[in-house]
Amino acid sequence: MAPEPSQNSVLVNPLATPDQLSTSGSQLDGVPASLETSVIHIGARLTQIAGVLLRLPQDLIAHAVVIFTRFWLGPESGSLCEYSIKHVCAAALYLTTKPSAHPKAPRSIINVLAYIEALGTVFFVQDDMDKNDPESYYVSEGTYFTERAQLTKVESIILRVLGFNTHVALPYTICINYLQTLGVFDDDSGSELAKRAWAHLNSALLSPQLLFVTHQPPCLATAAIYLAAKEVGVKLPSEQWWEVFDTDREELGFLVVAMLSMEGFLREEKQNWAGKRMPYTLDVVEQEIKALTDNS
């Protein structure tokens, strides 16, 4: 009775197929691709921030962000014209935490999202978080019930779009394993390197190339370590050590460049959305589509 490989191992993530990457429900509904990328990025950020405010561990937050991202991919997926990122974000967080060791009540999630919405932007620095005007994010009982109904409705739609496959494998744990294998923790710079690599993984989670749904965890972890080691100045083996972690040179190169491009992308996004309303709801998305099509 030999053990059979588990289909959903911690090393293997269900990845988006080329077909799912090339067509999306939003594009079929006429959302320009650039706007789609931008709005999904903001949704992913919204999920990350809400997760932090809900005091969730980062692996659960990342799980929710991946579920959020998958929802928009493929011809039969959710469309930005049909579902608002705020509701999908709430449902993804609810769905992910429910069976975990850190379940969150719909009320907590709805309150936290109302708070972030009141801040006016997801591109903020820490100081903005301290702004406290309870009037602006008070959720009345009536609003709560309609929001909760939306949340459970979108939850069941997410499950249907994903075919009830909510398995997510993440690179965080194996990133630490790999660093241990490379023996970097013998040195003081080891923990700095680990923090840097971890930070790269966290930004890759929000990347416009959707790295977490297109690349397997070992490759993501390896690329984050490679880039972090260059930045922190830790010397790694001169051999092709990434092959030990099942990453080939080409994929490593692509991931490193993608991770490096995050900074520019974020700067541009922040600039583009400066002074505008965040596309949390359908009407803002519609306005943006209109503005874009009028300009062209």
């Binding site: 090393l11 269900p14 994903l162 075919g163 092959e243 080939d248």
Partner: peptide, 19 residues
């Protein structure tokens, strides 16, 4: 791998599709 130096492990990848 492209450089032909070492065999890399590749697990069969899965995906998702609507129910």
């Amino acid at each position: 791998s492209d450089s032909g130096s070492a065999p890399l492990l590749r697990f069969p990848t899965t995906g998702w599709s609507p129910s």
